[in-house]
């Protein structure tokens, strides 16, 4: 009793506040854990209800399909390597789709970002509408746009190119505009002082500052777009995705295996290449395979 008396009042108060905070924190933790458990329970029960096969049976037959196709590939012996070479051209088509639409998206995103940056455009109405346009482009999943255009234009790579370009423009535009807004304005002021026009200020004041970071975002996006163009091929936009879908329908195990193999190799290779170049561009200490946590804004942002 005596010892508590000796603690000054303000320390006692801090102690009490701390205790209160601690308790509040614990309560929040319990509530959030409770919510997560509730959602999990709900999710599992919904899944059990609407899934065609049950969870237990699924787990036990998990390896059936991979074992099937791999054993078929094994039986085909040396002709398996021939299959890999056979599918290289369609792989190149898919990569072309991704690279081309990333380039278009890059240009679109650059235009979006410049017209939605508060430090370059003084008109708030323009900024508002460009941003909403960007949001709309970003919110539509590629698949939705691609399916609509597939209906309108027939089966070809074109719908996928359009869909990926639109989505990429929106996604990159948002990231770019943040980069542009964080620019150092002194360079712009310097250019203004020698009488440079708006377009020149952007060209020589902004672009050189942000270009490395824009390119690194674009490389990240390219990685995503290779995956996306494969998936869009799967619903009819050509390239390796379509070949994969056909082979699955025909149940050609060896072919499926070959396509999956080159797909995985390509994705991994592009992953590493893009990370290597990003490391060079950003130069965050680690050249090469540094992961660059700073510049990872979520894979599909």
């Amino acid at each position: 009793m005596n010892s508590t008396k000796s603690i000054p009042d303000h320390i006692q108060k801090i102690d009490n506040d701390l205790l209160k905070l601690e308790r509040a924190k614990r309560n929040y933790s319990f509530i959030s854990i409770g919510i997560v458990i509730l959602v999990c329970y709900l999710g599992i029960s919904v899944s059990e209800n609407s899934n065609a096969g049950s969870f237990a049976r699924g787990i036990s037959s998990f390896f059936d399909y991979p074992v099937d196709i791999i054993s078929e590939a094994y039986q085909s012996g040396f002709s398996f390597y021939g299959l890999i070479i056979k599918y290289i051209p369609v792989l190149i088509e898919t990569i072309n789709m991704a690279v081309f639409s990333t380039t278009v998206g890059f240009i679109g995103g650059l235009i979006f970002s410049i017209f939605s940056a508060r430090n370059l455009i003084k008109n708030p109405t323009v900024i508002f509408w460009v941003r909403r346009l960007m949001d709309v482009c970003r919110a539509f999943p590629e698949l939705v746009i691609a399916l609509l255009f597939l209906y309108l234009m027939g089966k070809s790579a074109l719908p996928a190119v359009i869909a990926i370009s639109i989505h990429t423009a929106g996604a990159l535009g948002k990231l770019f505009s943040e980069a542009v807004e964080n620019c150092d304005m002194k360079q712009i002021e310097g250019l203004e002082s020698v009488g440079a026009k708006w377009i020149m200020r952007v060209r020589f004041g902004i672009i050189p500052q942000v270009f490395p970071i824009l390119l690194s975002y674009t490389l990240l996006r390219l990685e995503i777009n290779v995956r996306a163009s494969t998936i869009l091929g799967f619903v009819g936009a050509g390239g390796i995705g379509e070949i994969l879908s056909k082979n699955i329908q025909w149940k050609y195990g060896a072919d499926i295996c070959a396509v999956i193999l080159i797909l995985v190799l390509t994705i991994t290779a592009i992953d590493y290449l893009s990370r290597y170049f990003r490391g060079i561009l950003i130069g965050d200490g680690k050249k090469g395979l540094g992961f660059g946590t700073k510049i990872l804004p979520g894979k599909n942002e």
């Binding site: 096969g53 494969t230 995705g241 999956i260």
Partner: peptide, 20 residues
């Protein structure tokens, strides 16, 4: 490296169509 496209194909065989 195995894209979620391929994973979903494998799981589609195992679990059938559905959330799992």
């Amino acid at each position: 490296g195995i894209d979620f496209l391929v994973w979903s194909l494998i799981f589609l065989r195992a679990f059938g169509p559905g959330p799992f």
